[in-house]
Design a binder for these strands. Structure first.
Lengths: 230, 230
DNA sequence: GTCTATATTACGATAGAC
DNA sequence: GTCTATCGTAATATAGAC
């Protein structure tokens, strides 16, 4: 069954390489530019549902050419996941995540995690969908658990300081919080153009067209203050 | 890479068949008992990461024997997903989901959706992870969108009746609500035995050992009233 | 760096015996 | 209903030319 035929895109879509001497421009793949294509296909078809043939079609080069850039399919997975993890763990090092009242630190981490998820959407999506069939996937799941536990500690502290309601268990609260955050990967598409509804109301929160700061604010508000009016 | 070796379990684990005449007991698979094994493996390895060989090892019968019960791998996927969808759509037909104030109907649907998710955990999990690589998967995604939209209408009505906060978009609120609900499939494991923490506090909300009604209540409380105190 | 050609293994599914 | 044996295809990866 061959749905989702990929349109080849060639090596053009790679990030601006200001790094390597005045070799002005080369129309070839780097491991990183190839990665962005691969991660996109992984997310469309699932990692296990993606063959090297799919990747070669999407990248517009032959299968064997891919092996010139990376050792194999699993290395593309590992690189993609690494990028996601780097962004997420960096949030925990930010000053507002380490100083102040626990509930304030928790709100900061929540907000920034949403922003990182949206900024690095394909990479974080890849991380969130890992199943554990290979060593790389098991490593990814382990690192992700580490991150979750760091946040869970914040929730526990905030509860101990009396800032979170006591009738919902801290562990359960953490899970529901991550449920909201991580689900953003299921529907947020950065390419969507903003359009206002016919009734011309407040346009700042119209579904798939929000900025990451707006979505982050909505998540924080919903998680901490709830959906009901007063 | 062959992790997660399946222990064969034989046809024993099938549901009690009180149906078919006094053929007291047959130690063989029915399409349904085979389905429960298949769905479990699908969820452990992912659908695309599961081969007929994996299924045959897990079921304790040969690959070709599986084809006696079902037409192929995709039929197992379709049957599993159907079961999930049946349970979810049934919630929308319940009386409290169709009568009364929209916000009350929404809370009912939320609570009952969580309960169905937990009661039919493997089947709903399978539904939630579908990617869209086959006709069956595309059908599943379409039906799931239908369900989501039915709930989204409830959210919109509740907002129109003034019972939901107006500073979070209805569509976004729906998505965050489903984010919380669906994420339960990522961590809830019904086999966990309840154990109280050392400090002997309230044991009714200790992480992975909750009843479905308790988890449903926590979801409703968190979603509608929020995490913060007062 | 990219290609064609190919080695080798794994996959889904079927044939036919018991 | 289950099995062994096998078919045809698609998978990952490599060899070697340009």
């Amino acid at each position: 069954m061959e749905n989702f035929a990929q349109r080849p895109e060639g090596p053009a879509g790679r990030p601006a390489s200001i790094g390597r001497m005045p070799t002005v421009k080369r129309d070839t793949y780097t491991p990183d530019s190839l990665l962005s294509v691969a991660v996109r296909v992984f997310n469309e078809r699932g990692y296990d549902g993606t063959s090297m043939e799919h990747l070669s079609k999407a990248a517009g080069i032959s299968k064997s050419s891919i092996y010139h850039h990376v050792r194999g399919k699993e290395e593309l997975l590992r690189r993609g996941i690494s990028r996601a993890l780097d962004g997420l763990f960096a949030v925990l090092e930010e000053v507002p995540a380490r100083e102040g009242r626990a509930v304030e630190r928790l709100e900061h981490v929540t907000r920034r995690t949403v922003e990182v998820l949206m900024a690095e959407l394909p990479y974080v999506t890849l991380l969130l969908r890992v199943r554990g069939n290979t060593e790389t996937e098991l490593w990814a799941m382990s690192r992700r658990r580490e991150f979750d536990q760091r946040v869970a500690e914040l929730v526990k502290q905030a509860a101990a300081e009396g800032d979170l309601r006591s009738d919902v268990d801290a562990r359960l609260a953490t899970r529901l919080l991550f449920g909201m955050i991580n689900s953003i990967a299921e529907w947020y598409r950065p390419d969507r153009v903003a359009h206002n509804g016919a009734a011309g109301g407040d346009s700042s929160a119209s579904g798939g067209s929000n900025t990451s700061a707006e979505v982050a604010e909505a998540v924080v508000r919903t998680a901490f203050a709830g959906l009901r009016t007063s």
